[in-house]
Simulated scan of single mutants.
Amino acid sequence: MKALMMTRVGEPEVLQLQQVDEPVIRQPSEVKIKLYAAGVNPIDTKIRRGGLLQGDRFPVILGCDGAGEVVEVGASVSRYKPGDKVWFCHGGLGLEQGNYAPVNVVDERWLATMPSNASYIEAAAAPLVLITAWGALYNRGRLQAGQTVLIHGGAGGVGHVAIQLAKLRGARVITTVSSSEKEQFVRNLGADEVIIYPTEDTLERLLALTLGRGADLVFDTVGRDVFLPSITMTAHFGTLVSILDPGVFDFQEARMRNLSIAFELMLTPMLRNLSEARDEQVAILQRCAEYMLAGQLVIEVSEVFSLAEGLGAHAIIEAGHTQGKIVLTI
């Protein structure tokens, strides 16, 4: 089969379409999947540059998110049969094969049944961002109905599903975006208030919207430049959750506010082989499938590339300000 291979650490050009042996079932609990689409995430670009990369043998196949059809099952597989449509987040970190390929083999434990109203493209776009947003808001952030949440970068991959999950929990959602076009996009997703950060003072506007209190929960999907000012955007006794490393910072104001500060790295269960935590992630996908079937959760895919065009997808993600998700078709 021809797969998009990471030949070494470096720029997008290190991604090359190469012939490689098709994976085969080796364990009785494994499932062979014909992949139709693979999600492209910012973490893929960071792994390509060497961050969180497991092992040092090249070439490797990137791509954590995949969606496809079961074509073969191991002797002990009980949950799936040939013809079933599945979506999942597995591999792509350097040791186990990722999903920038026509075929993958995955243990049935890490698969979930695709929502029947989703295309392969939509399904492949979703797992990592859904698990991330769910973990950040519901598990780390303990979001409750009636609370106010500030979601930075609401038009992005994680941000746009976070808005919807927060509304499903009954929260008031304030979000930041970079343009008036994105403002309309996030309002259509359910955002109650939108701050266009290039032209508005985010803290000033937030305080005006919350009568000087700040948000009960602030969700940083951007990084250090947003994380640090978010401390003063979080209400006293509130929670600040980030999906990125903020680096070294002064805790004084966070301590004075009695803030809870948490981090959401959904890859930790894969990186640390935490099987029970991975079971919980599969359960999240099953719950999200129910929301999607009910029309309460949608996945925005802004651009679709062929597998051979994967380096272009990486370049766009690294340029920033992507709306929704980018997907490779296979």
Rank of each mutant, 00 (worst) to 15 (best):
G94R: 05
G92T: 12
S116F: 08
W87V: 09
Y100P: 03
F88N: 08
W110H: 11
M114S: 14
V106R: 05
L93C: 07
A112C: 05
C89T: 07
W110K: 11
C89M: 15
N104Y: 02
V106M: 09
V86E: 05
P115D: 05
P102R: 11
W110Q: 12
R109C: 00
H90Q: 13
V103P: 03
F88M: 12
V86S: 13
G98A: 15
L93N: 09
V103L: 09
N104I: 03
V103W: 04
Y100W: 14
M114K: 05
G91M: 11
D107Y: 03
M114A: 08
E96Y: 02
L93T: 14
V86Q: 13
N99A: 12
L95P: 08
E96I: 09
Q97W: 04
M114G: 05
N104A: 15
R109W: 07
N104H: 03
Q97K: 10
F88C: 12
R109Y: 04
E96D: 12
A112D: 01
S116Q: 13
A112R: 00
L95N: 14
L111M: 11
L95E: 15
P102G: 10
L93A: 11
L93H: 13
D107V: 04
W110R: 02
A101G: 05
A101W: 08
R109V: 03
Q97L: 05
V103K: 05
A112H: 00
A101Q: 06
L95Y: 15
P115E: 03
T113E: 01
Q97S: 13
W110E: 04
M114L: 13
T113M: 01
N99S: 15
Q97F: 06
P115Y: 09
W87R: 07
F88P: 09
M114T: 11
W87F: 13
Q97R: 15
Q97D: 07
R109P: 01
V86Y: 12
V103E: 05
F88T: 14
Y100F: 11
E96Q: 12
P115G: 03
H90W: 10
N104D: 10
W110N: 04
P102C: 12
L111R: 04
Q97P: 04
T113W: 01
N99P: 05
G94M: 01
G91E: 08
Y100A: 02
P115F: 02
A101I: 04
V86I: 13
F88E: 07
D107A: 10
C89F: 07
A112W: 09
G94E: 11
E96M: 09
C89V: 13
G94N: 06
L95S: 15
T113N: 01
Q97Y: 04
H90R: 14
E96C: 02
L111H: 07
R109S: 04
A101N: 00
E96S: 09
R109G: 00
Y100L: 07
W110D: 07
A112M: 03
F88Y: 15
P115L: 00
A101E: 02
P102M: 14
Q97T: 05
G92P: 08
V103N: 06
N104G: 08
L93M: 15
V86D: 08
S116T: 12
G98L: 12
L93Y: 13
N104Q: 11
T113H: 08
W87I: 06
L111N: 09
A101D: 03
V106A: 10
G92W: 11
N99G: 06
G94S: 10
A112G: 15
A112N: 06
G98E: 15
G92A: 14
F88A: 07
G91Q: 10
W110M: 04
V103G: 05
L93G: 02
